[in-house]
Every structure is written in C-alpha cells, then in structure tokens.
Design a binder for these strands. Structure first.
Lengths: 340, 340
DNA sequence: CTGAAAGCGCTTACAG
DNA sequence: CTGAAAGCGCTTACAG
C-alpha cells in the first residue's frame, strides 16, 4: 500500500535514522549537534539518510534531556506599540539566523500578568529570557533569578539594579539634550506628558529634563496622559489653566503625540504658534502631519542586536558579572517646535 | 545549610510532589490535567503540596509524552505592519486566557523562508498552527497537511482552496463597495497601488474593483508600488502620464498611503483636489493628516477570535470538513476622497 | 478511585 | 572514533 496524500505517515525518529544508516543513535546525535567528531564517511551516510527519510528532530525530547530548550522567551508590554513590534521583528530575525525559536508573551505593563506569563515561559524551560519590564518587576526578577535562566533586561531598568545584563537608552542624557534644545529655542515652561510617572524610564527622563531646566530656572511640569483621547484632552485643558502656561510639550509615546495633536484641534491651539510639540517616540507619520513632528529617534535594531548578543553570551556561560550598555538616541527638531 | 538567594535550588518534579503527598505520580498527574477523577481528599492534599513545593510542571516532558505540545505556532509576514501586530496582540491575549503559549515566526512574505520557519515550528510539535500565508504557499501547505497539525489560514486564501479552516475578509465585496463609492462620487479612472499584484488578496480586490467598474465603463489600472518611497514616487509619476489620468488612487497598505501622500508633495499634486486617496488599511494617523484619510476598517480582534475558535475546535478534534468564514469590513469616506 | 510500569525521543557520560 | 545504556519528567493504558 502506498502512502498517498492525506495518509499520515509515522514520524521518523533518530532510531530510524540510526538503523537505516547502520550506526548507533549516539552517532546520529553527534553528527546533528554533538561536540564529538564523527568520521567523515559515517557523517555523510547519516546526512544522506536524514535527507532521504525527511527526518526532523524532536526539540521537545532534546530540551527535556538537556533540561533547557533552544527557545528564547520574550516578554514585552504590548505589540501594538510600533516601538515594541519593531523590537520583536528585529529579535525574530536574529533568532531565526541562530536557529533559535521565540516564545512571546505580553505583560500589558501589569506586574501580576508579567509574573504569571513568565512563569508560563519557564514551564517550557526556555534557554533565555528577554524582558522589557513592567513598572514593578521586583517579584518577577526574584523568580527569574531563582530559576537561573539567562536573562537580559531591555529598555527599562533602574540605575542601581545590577542583577541582570541590560541594554537601555540613556534616557537622562537624551532628555537633557532635548530639553536644552527647547531652552535654546526660547522655551521657559515645558510640560512632559507620560503614561505613568512611576515608570523608571520616565523618572530618568524627568531627571534629565530637570538637569537642563533647573539651573536656568525653566519651569517643568509632568502630567499623566491617561488611557484615552478624551481623558488626555480634558487633563491637558486643565493643565493649561496653570501659570506659567507651557509653550512646549514633550510626550513619551507616539500615541500621546497623536492624541495631543487631536486635543489641540479641539482646544483651538495652533501648533507650533501657541505650543510646540516634541515626541520621544518616532511614529510612522512623523513627516506626514502639519507641522512635521519633532522626535527622538532610537536605533531599535541596534538595541535588539546588543540584547541578543548579551543573551547568547550568557547562554554559553561566557559572561561574568552582569553587563550593561546605554545607547544614545538622536533628537530631531522639525516644524512642530518653534523659536520663540 | 539554608538555600539563600542566588543559590539555585533543584527543580521539583512530579515525583517530589507524589512522594510528599504520599500518592503515586499518576494521581498527581490526574489532579493536574487528567480526565480521571481523583477523590477530593487526595486532590486537596496534592494541591497543597504543589503550592508548598512551588512545583511547576515541565511542559517539554508533557509535550514529548503526548506527542503534541500545548503551543500554537503563528507565522505572519512581518510584525512591523500595524495590522499584523494588532493580530498578534489579539492572538496572545486569547492564548494566555486558554493557558496556551505562542511561538512566533516571520516569513517576510517569502515562500522559502515561510517553509523553513514552519519546519522549525513543527520540530517543537506545536499543537496548532495559525498562518497568514505568503504569495505561493502550496509547498508549505503540503508539508503541513502531511504533518497532520491542526491549522487555520488567516487573511489570505484562494477561493478554491478547501484544505484548511480559514477566516478571511471578503476582499471582493469590500473592494466592490469601495469602488462603487468612488464611482458614485464621479470618479471614472481609478489607480490601485499594491505591493504584489500576484497576492491572492489583491487579485480578489482587483476582481471586486472590476465588478463595480467594468459594467459602467470606468477605467481601472493596477500598479505595484515597489519597496521604497523613491521607487513609488517614480512609478507614480510615470503612471500619471497615461490617459485617462486617474482621479482616485486606492492603496493596499497604510505604508503606501504614507508614501503616496509624500509623493503628492514632490509631484505637486493636491489631494483631494487633483487626486483622491483611499487606503485599504487603517493607519494610526488616519485623522491626523490633512486631508483626513478615507479608509477600509477591518475588525482585527474579530478575525483573531474567529481564527482561534476554529483552531481550538480542530485541536479538540471536533471539526469535520474544513470551515470557512468571510468577515465584512467597513468603508469610511473622509476628506481625502472628493466629489467630482 | 489508585498504583506500578512502560515509553515518548532524545543526549551524554562511560567503556572500549 | 563508536556503541550500549541510563535517564530527562511526564502521561496513559492496564490491573486491581
């Protein structure tokens, strides 16, 4: 009887390959991924049989035996945010090139969910972990440390935390530079709109802002933008009652940039004549709107590559003390910021 | 000796739990996920021990034994495209709710890469597969069918393919409706800009366009937009030499929408006075630009949920012949399309 | 309802 | 360089 289409064929195992090639399973295993050398003749024979049989190794068995799977778990808050989806895409690209697969979970920025989702990842004995942490990741950090799984923290990390490798942006320096740029253009009162002021990256940015503003007496305020357009519009309207009224707004995400531009319409504020705008995130539409948006441009692929390099090193046990690197970002002033 | 922080503790196994609870491993397994009932007293004891020991099951062992892992593999072309990242986010949400993990791979729209990436997924014995296929997925389809892994095809599928469950948009109907809307507004020559004319969804859309245009003698042209802004600008400029000159452009993606708007600036074309624009994809900036963009709005979460429902059903072996569903989408006309 | 035992498909010391 | 064998941590018939 022939095995026609639709007939499920029995999956080949390493035993089938060994039998057909006339070698032991250990030898097959060694040609596939052993540290031990196999004589060229046998090696070739095994390879031929593998191709002929269409043998595909069972990574579950491999992972069980090695107590570690060639999979990297990645936890980010969301993927609908362009910055995170760009990160994910960069990670997938480099993972595929290394023969490693990715299990992705989302924390939604919630510490509880983050904890649970990473527990799930650990059940699969992932060989490494890449995390863009939520606001309060300490319980999660403890659990990960206890598990001993190689981990690198991306993007958000407190300055005094040395438990894991980490690759971040120098939020303080970039924001100090951005603020200086606004001050140079005559702005003396600046409003910073963030998702959560408690987020470590925002604290670093606020500190950077103050480092530029305080010495010259420039006025700084921070506002949490809220979860939707109407909340932001209302809060912004309220904020603009205060004296001194801001002449420039910095937003932490491109979503906020969009919401602020819409709020400006409702509130009949002309940008940049009345108020200037700078976005810390770079949206696809940065140069489609009028006025063209001023942005901070971050090298996403670079951060992904660095994080991956760190992780691979640690998965090979080559690393010693936790490494850290801070990448720089570029501040691009366009029409949305004006000289006063 | 105490096990202080930093001291890696031996991972608990089901044997440890069984020993401590004074039952057999089979019983522990049954309280965790067995079809067999366990007496309430023992059940509670096992649960207590699990909590006390911090036992977390090894899903690699489970998957190996069951010959199928509670993981769903997802293959999409890219994640940097907002539509796909929204899909991914919806999938992750529903997966987490079902206690299932996701392995994500990217095909970059290339049939070869797609094939290889799905081969990798299969090595992990994923329990199900969700695919937004590339242009020519027939070899991949064959391989998947041979593997017997439950699969649902999302978004792109030929009309005559009945091998897998599928959930798609009714591209033909939506485009016919959109085209009718343009015709109603007086447009008699329409240009459709696509990534690849060979893509099944684009063929369906072109057919829908013709269904509305041909009977009333409206002129249709199709242009491949190319891989970058400058290519698109050049091709568009060339296309506009032809008679009759289009008075309306439809683009298949929001990236093209952005590129076309930039090309309009370079070519000194006023939208919508000279040419109207309609995007088949809904960008975040749809109402930020001037003129506000006309779009087709697709219910992403709905498609994700339907696909997941189909997949779960098939993973439970409840489905018979392949199911198919076509979702509708909404055409929203805004300032970027004018009455002639 | 419960337990003893086989076995999923690999890797890796261990001898030779 | 090569093979025989133990064992990774589970699930699931099979008896009782």
């Amino acid at each position: 009887m022939e095995a026609g289409p639709g007939v499920k064929q029995k999956r080949m195992t390493i035993l089938d390959v060994a039998a057909m090639a006339g070698v032991s399973v250990g030898t097959v295993s060694n040609v596939l991924n052993g540290t031990i050398t196999v004589s060229e003749a046998r090696r070739q024979r095994v390879l031929d049989v593998i191709k002929e049989l269409g043998y595909s190794p069972n990574m579950l068995a491999l992972g069980l035996r090695r107590k570690r799977s060639p999979v990297v778990g990645i936890c980010v808050p969301q993927t609908s945010i362009p910055y995170f989806s760009a990160l994910m895409e960069a990670f997938e690209e480099v993972a595929a090139a290394h023969g490693i697969e990715i299990m992705q979970v989302l924390s939604q920025g919630d510490a509880q969910i983050e904890y649970q989702r990473i527990v799930s990842l650990l059940k699969y004995r992932v060989g490494g972990l890449l995390i863009v942490p939520s606001k309060d990741p300490s319980a999660t950090y403890e659990m990960i440390a206890a598990s001993g799984v190689p981990t690198v923290v991306v993007e958000r990390a407190p300055d005094d935390d040395f438990a894991f490798d980490r690759v971040t942006f120098d939020n303080h320096a970039v924001m100090q530079r951005a603020t200086q740029g606004l001050i140079d253009r005559g702005h003396r009162s600046i409003l910073f709109i963030v998702s959560e002021a408690g987020l470590i990256v925002n604290q670093q940015r606020i500190a950077g802002m103050r480092a530029a503003a305080d010495p010259v007496g420039v006025h700084i305020r921070v506002l949490e933008g809220g979860r939707d357009q109407s909340t932001l519009t209302a809060r912004l309207a309220g904020e603009l009652q205060n004296e001194p009224r801001p002449t420039a707004i910095v937003v932490s995400t491109s979503t906020f940039a969009a919401w602020v531009l819409r709020a400006f319409r409702v509130l009949r504020i002309d940008c940049p004549r009345d108020i200037s705008l700078l976005s810390f995130e770079q949206p696809e539409w940065e140069d489609l709107v009028t006025p063209k948006l001023s942005v901070v441009s971050r090298p996403t692929r670079e951060i992904a590559r660095m994080a991956w390099t760190f992780l691979m090193r640690r998965m090979r046990n080559e690393a010693e003390i936790p490494q850290r690197i801070q990448l720089d970002a570029e501040v691009i002033f366009r029409e949305s910021v004006r000289h006063i």
